[in-house]
């Protein structure tokens, strides 16, 4: 018997992204550039995080017509973002046959209390997390992939580093816990104790974990891989730079050859100006996207 939409099948697609770069795109042309550069997937959205940050207002899911055009234009898998808790935006994307849905803090949350019950969907979801507790709560809700949040649209990698280090550090801590300690830890984190046991056994999250939020250079991508990311999302970093294609190709190469300084040197040199960026420490709490859910 053939079964579709199972947990294995959903988590399995995320496994295929590993060691790769997922790029934010807002037009068909950008999607083609991303594919040409070697992206493993593209994230179709209406405005990249840097513009959402600059222009303000309510950020919603992209026009399904635009998402459809991008799905038709490339052969690689296509993702799209929905607002946190926006079940209906997600249902539209599922109907269209999108490959992955990002329930994302980059958009303005639709529900300030509840996330989408992602087990009810045949399509896999990715969600953001700043630490192990957030990651396991999202997995508990059915997320098939996690991305550490970072601070989107800044071009400042420091928050991505903080969040990846936090997850890795907490995983290591859990690995050394006794059963009684683990039960209390699950209570403190507000997560299912079974999931925490799985983390202890595996020594990692039970789903693929990418880095996101502020990656702008090949070296940034290599740094996140060094810290234990399975791959990277690049949002504003490519199409807010002055020459996107060479930069996108360089980030793809750096994500594969992150352990090889010779390759990193070669792909990093001579790239034109990167995105201008914002020092994440200068943001007031209200401007931070990472705190929109927990």
């Amino acid at each position: 018997m053939t079964e579709i939409g199972t947990t294995k099948v959903k988590r399995g697609l995320a496994e295929m992204f590993k060691g790769g770069v997922i790029m934010d795109v807002t037009t068909v042309d950008q999607a083609k550039i991303a594919e040409e550069a070697g992206a493993v997937s593209v994230m179709a959205l209406e405005r990249i995080p840097a513009d959402i940050r600059r222009e303000g207002g309510v950020a919603r899911a992209a026009d399904p017509g635009l998402v459809e055009q991008i799905m038709d234009a490339v052969s690689i898998p296509v993702m799209a973002k929905v607002r946190i808790g926006h079940i209906s935006e997600a249902r539209i994307l599922e109907y269209m046959g999108i490959d992955f849905i990002d329930e994302s803090e980059v958009l303005t949350p639709a529900d300030v209390t509840y996330h989408i019950d992602k087990w009810q969907f045949k399509i896999p979801f990715v969600c953001g997390a700043r630490n192990l507790g957030e990651a396991l709560r999202r997995i508990g809700e059915g997320a098939a992939m996690i991305r550490t949040k970072g601070e989107p649209g800044t071009g400042d990698v420091s928050e991505a580093v903080t969040h990846m280090r936090a997850v890795m550090n907490e995983v290591r801590k859990v690995q050394s816990m006794l059963e009684d300690e683990l039960v209390v830890e699950a209570k403190d984190l507000g997560v299912n104790v079974e999931l925490l046991r799985e983390v202890r056994k595996l020594g990692r999250l039970p789903v693929v974990n990418f880095a996101a939020g502020g990656i702008a250079t090949p070296a940034d991508a290599a740094l996140m891989m060094t810290l234990g990311a399975d791959g990277v999302f690049v949002g504003s970093g490519i199409f807010k730079s002055s020459d996107p294609l060479p930069r996108a190709k360089a980030i793809v190469a750096a994500t594969t050859y992150w352990e090889d300084p010779k390759v990193l040197f070669e792909v990093s040199k001579g790239l034109k100006t990167g995105m201008p960026g914002i020092d994440a420490r200068t943001l007031v709490e209200l401007d931070k996207m990472q705190v929109r859910d927990n």
Partner: peptide, 14 residues
């Protein structure tokens, strides 16, 4: 490539 369709047609079977 993608002979079964997009991700929603991904499956498991014996």
């Amino acid at each position: 490539r993608n002979a079964f369709g997009r991700q929603k047609e991904s499956s498991e079977e014996d």
